[in-house]
Amino acid sequence: MNAVLEFFGRGVLRVFEGVGRFFELLGMTLRGLVVPPWAPVATARQVVRVGVDSVPVVLLTALFTGGVLALQTFKGFQRFHAEGYIGSVVALSMLRELGPVLTGLMVTGRAGSAMAAELGSMRVTEQIDALVSLATDPVQYLFVPRVLASIIVVPMLVVLADAIGILGGYLVAVGYLGANPVIYMNNTFQYLSMEDMTSGLIKAAAFGFLLSLVGCQCGYDTTGGAEGVGLSTTKAVVMGSLAILIADFFLTKVLF
């Protein structure tokens, strides 16, 4: 009986420890965002790594998601002769939901995992200890440029993803399903409002913040050697993706 209680007790303690650590590092990162020294060069480098390098994978994902959305919607809408609204459904889905969420997940897989691997390797090779010994705050030096770059660049990626997703839907609807291009384009933009765009971008900035913070934290707290780095990388993807999906629900509830 004692062993069972001990097992659950340890689990609960670990959860509280993890949550506490997350908020501790969150506080340190927020402080680093407003207190100098800032690192514009390091931030620009991260903008390239997180943003520019993620463009191909995000665009491909968006293109095929827009396409498959058009296909699925056509099948459903055909049943009640509403094929003309495919464009609206694709555009609204991309802007409000699929653009930010899929971009967030793809960037987590690409950049969040890379952050965890990089910081994890730095931890196990004592480079983070070296930073501290050189009187440098590792959270300010390592977290802040990555978090800032992600907040800036994920919304930009989402704008691209939205546009390419709509293009994917258009290509499938017009090129494959034979929809009228003029009616399709007209319906695509007719029911869109500025709020659809801004709420998607707010979500994107929040996802950028979450995926980078989780990625950095998983790497920063790495223990052990190469195996530890591998585990941190996996954890960064799993926790980052979960954080995005959970935050998506609450943000949607607040924003709409």
Partner: peptide
């Protein structure tokens, strides 16, 4: 950090920033 600037530490494998 001011006190740490009085130190110079050499790590086992160098711990150079790669």
């Amino acid at each position: 950090d001011r006190l740490r600037r009085k130190f110079g530490m050499s790590f086992q494998e160098g711990a150079l920033f790669d």
